[in-house]
Amino acid sequence: MSDPFTFQMLVNYLIIGAGLMALGTLGFLSRRNMIVMFLSAEMMLQGTALTLVAFGRYHGNWTGQIFTIVILTVAACEASIALALILILFNRKSSLDVTLWNEIREPGQPAIVEDPAEAEATEPVPGVESYPVLTPAGIEPEHQTWTVHRD
C-alpha cells in the first residue's frame, strides 16, 4: 500500500473508536429495550476492534488483527447467549423492558417504578395506524396462555 500509516492516521482511528465506545455506553445505559441494549454492547465491541486494528497497523504487526478475531469470536458467543437470555426473559414477563427485572436488584435499593403515562406520546400517523380501535364485544373465548401477560 502506498499510503503510509502515520501517527496522525492512528489518532484518527482512535477518535472514531472512542466515539463508538461512548455512544455504545450511552445506549446501554439509557435505553430500556433489551434488544437495543444488546446492539449497543455490540457497538462498543466494534469501537474496540477498530482501535486494535489501527494499533496493529501502526506498529506493523498482526497482533491487533488477531485480537480482533478473538473479539469477533467473543461477540458471536455473547450474541448467542444474550439472545437466548432475551428469549427466556421475554417468556417470563412478555416484555422486552429491562426495568421489569428490578426485583433482582441489590437489597436496600429503592424500586424503580415506571409510569407508562410519562412515555413520549406517539404522533398520529395518517393511514391504517390512526384508524379508530373498536372495543371488543361479546364473551371472551377460553384460551390457554403459557406466559404471564401484562396489561
Binding site: L29, S30, R31, R32, N33, V36, S95, L96, D97, T99, E114, P116, E118, A119, E120, A121, T122
Partner: peptide, 12 residues
C-alpha cells in the same frame, strides 16, 4: 406489542 412504552421513555 406494537409501539411499546419502554421504547419511548429512556432511563435518566
Amino acid at each position: 406489542e406494537g409501539r411499546a412504552t419502554y421504547d419511548r421513555m429512556a432511563r435518566s
